[in-house]
């Protein structure tokens, strides 16, 4: 379990990082917190020829609040967010999700940009970003662009970030005063990737008004079903549970050693109900 040989670069700014990416193309891979990439390399599931360490890229750092958005630099670590005193008031949904992400040691190193870039099917933050209608800022040789979270997570470990692009920051709208936020996930052990989880916001939880919900851990990417959200309008949490299981029928859900697709469908209804009831 040793990574194959690789070269290592530590560019000082975004321009240099992008230039390296352009130069090495698919042979290069950006390195953020390394919590996912290093194990993949040790398992020899990833074998980049060169790692471009983003630690020194100033443009990727920082946590700034403007009037109605928070800009989270891609290299912001989970720990930085947890330590940010304004987090609960500004991004309550993110605050709810963070304790469920892995363990302290991993949160000390893991980055928000890494989580969004990796797009693990069970990751919390991609779902959270969809619920919050965040925008992901990516930069490439042609400059930078913003992609809505709803359009960003395109497939199993696939995103709209091109191979020669980098995620620079995530722009997250601050909590709306009239909305409430909810989160629930089911993992057999604390800190594990969820068997099923949901992040949501609503004007009112029970009965439901104006729901936005994204399920994670159940399919290749976070699942948001606008039709379902509309259909849940006015329902109680209990009624919503059954509606969710029905709506997920026929969807291509994950199945692994921890839960079959049927189990995930069932648990999706449970997590939604529990999240709503806890709000």
């Amino acid at each position: 379990m040793k990574a194959p040989d690789f070269a290592y670069a530590r560019p000082a700014d975004l321009g240099a990082a992008l230039a390296l990416l352009a130069e090495h193309g698919t042979e290069a891979q950006p390195l953020a917190g390394g919590q996912s990439l290093m194990p993949m390399m040790n398992f020899r599931l990833a074998a980049p020829e060169i790692l471009i360490d983003l630690s020194d890229v100033a443009e990727l750092r920082g946590l700034e609040r403007t009037r109605d958005t928070v800009r989270i630099g891609a290299m912001t670590r989970y720990r930085d967010l947890e330590d940010w005193p304004d987090l609960g008031g500004t991004l309550p949904l993110v605050a709810m999700a963070l304790p469920h992400i892995a363990h302290d040691a991993i949160r000390n190193r893991g980055t928000i940009g890494g989580s969004i870039a990796l797009c693990d099917p069970a990751a919390e933050l991609p779902a959270v970003m969809r619920v919050l209608a965040a925008e992901i800022e990516v930069a490439g040789a042609e400059g930078s662009r913003r992609v809505a979270a709803d359009d960003f997570f395109t497939g199993f470990y696939e995103t709209a970030c091109g191979e020669e692009e980098l995620i620079v920051a995530i722009h997250v709208p601050v909590a709306e005063a009239d909305r409430v936020y909810g989160f629930h996930e089911l993992a057999q052990r604390h800190g594990d990737y969820a068997m099923a989880g949901v992040a949501l916001s609503a004007l009112s939880p029970n009965p439901i008004r104006s729901l936005r919900a994204a399920f994670f851990g159940i399919a290749a990417t976070p699942v948001r079903l606008p039709d379902l959200e509309a259909a849940l309008e006015g329902l109680t949490a209990c009624e919503a549970q059954a509606a969710v299981t029905a709506a997920l029928e026929g969807l291509d859900l994950l199945a692994d050693t921890k839960a079959s697709a049927d189990m995930r469908r069932h648990l999706s209804g449970v997590v939604l109900k529990r999240a709503l009831e806890a709000m």
């Binding site: 057999q188 052990r189 594990d192 050693t257």
Partner: peptide, 16 residues
């Protein structure tokens, strides 16, 4: 073997 990593093979942890 489907459970050849610590992520797939669940050992009991203190929290539980």
């Amino acid at each position: 073997l489907l459970t050849a990593t610590m992520a797939d093979y669940l050992v009991p942890m203190a929290a539980e």
